[in-house]
Simulated assay, not measured.
Amino acid sequence: MAGEPTDLVLSERREGYRVLTLNRPDRLNAFTGAMHEALRAALDDAVADETCRALLLTGAGRGFCAGQDLSERRGGEGRAVDLSQTLDQYYNPLIRRLRDLPMPVVCAVNGVAAGAGANLALACDIVLAARSATFLQAFARLGLVPDAGGTWVLPRLVGRARARGLALLAEPLAAETAEAWGMIWRVHDDAVLMDEAHRLAARLATQPTAGLRLIRDALDASETNDLDRQLDLERDLQGRAGRTPDYREGVAAFLEKRPPRFTGGAS
């Protein structure tokens, strides 16, 4: 069931997956503490649901997420604000949670993704974007450092030179350029973005969920492992994957020349 229109994060159950929608369209879905809490609760609820095997994250209205709502971060006259507390309390746990979910996450960027909103999108497993969407590392405009994992993910996605340009110049990047640079998976025309995102989430929800999680673990570890460590990790993860019911089902379906019926269970 969809959440009420006043909810800060709408949660909608679909067959095999959930749609989580950031819902402050009048503020381009900029984050407040309350919206962080709502998203945390929605993620908890999805993980507790054994029938949920994928997530689709998007934003209501004309934007995905404009990052932090700065009206919550004003200091009094002559008083500084400790932004590190915001990261410790909200953004860092959110990014860690997304990277550690037991299911794949599709992000549909339906408009501007700025600041922490851009890096929230890039923390997801597969990012789709509307052709009109833009990505903006807005932090330098405020004298700040990219956060929500931005300084980690950008060099790995687009390389050192492009990451520095995006961070230091704080210029918007068109979705088609983001796709060409390998920052996101695919661009779609605005009118079909959500249809394509739903199609992808529904597909992932029928796949071997435990195996997909192990693939993600291996790819994440490869960022810092040398080849020997990565080969050892592949060995260990493959051993775990081979003990899952989905592996047995995949082999049986291949030999019997039929579509597999994966259940998503771990070993």
Rank of each mutant, 00 (worst) to 15 (best):
A129Q: 00
A30V: 03
G242T: 05
A113S: 00
G165F: 06
A201M: 04
G115R: 04
D220Y: 10
C124L: 01
L233K: 03
G76C: 11
F31C: 03
I95T: 15
R73V: 06
L57N: 01
A252K: 08
A34Q: 10
R131N: 09
E4R: 15
R99M: 12
R160I: 06
Y91A: 12
E72L: 07
E249N: 02
Q68E: 15
A180D: 09
G76H: 10
A129K: 01
Q207S: 14
N110P: 02
Q238S: 15
T244E: 01
E77T: 11
A46Y: 00
A138T: 12
P155C: 09
C52K: 08
P25D: 05
R62Y: 12
R96E: 15
A118G: 01
V127R: 06
L55H: 02
A66L: 15
R199N: 10
E171H: 06
L8K: 09
L22T: 04
V145Y: 13
L56P: 10
A121W: 04
P260R: 06
D88E: 14
R213Y: 11
G143M: 08
Y247K: 00
A130V: 06
E179P: 09
L255V: 08
L10Y: 05
S222G: 08
A241F: 05
D190S: 02
A130M: 05
A138R: 11
R216P: 08
I184M: 10
V47I: 08
Y91L: 07
D195A: 14
L212W: 09
Q85R: 15
L122S: 02
E176N: 10
L39S: 02
G115L: 02
R40C: 09
V105W: 10
G59K: 09
A108Y: 00
C124K: 05
V109S: 01
D246G: 03
E176A: 09
A221T: 01
V81A: 00
D195M: 09
V127A: 01
R99E: 13
R261K: 10
G159C: 13
R248L: 10
G264K: 01
G250N: 05
G78M: 07
Q68N: 09
A54T: 03
P146H: 13
R156W: 07
W181M: 12
E234T: 11
P245T: 00
R40K: 04
R162T: 12
D125K: 04
A2M: 14
R141P: 04
A54V: 03
L56T: 04
L57W: 03
L128V: 00
V9Y: 07
L173M: 15
G75Q: 11
D232E: 14
A42N: 00
V9T: 09
Q89I: 13
D217C: 08
C124W: 06
N119G: 03
L57K: 05
L233C: 02
D69M: 07
L94P: 07
L237D: 02
A202L: 14
R62P: 13
L55W: 00
A38P: 04
G182H: 03
D236E: 12
G117Q: 02
D236T: 13
L43V: 03
L157E: 05
D217T: 12
R79S: 07
R160N: 13
E256Q: 15
G59S: 09
R240F: 01
R229T: 12
S71L: 14
S222E: 08
I95S: 12
Y91R: 04
A218F: 03
F135P: 09
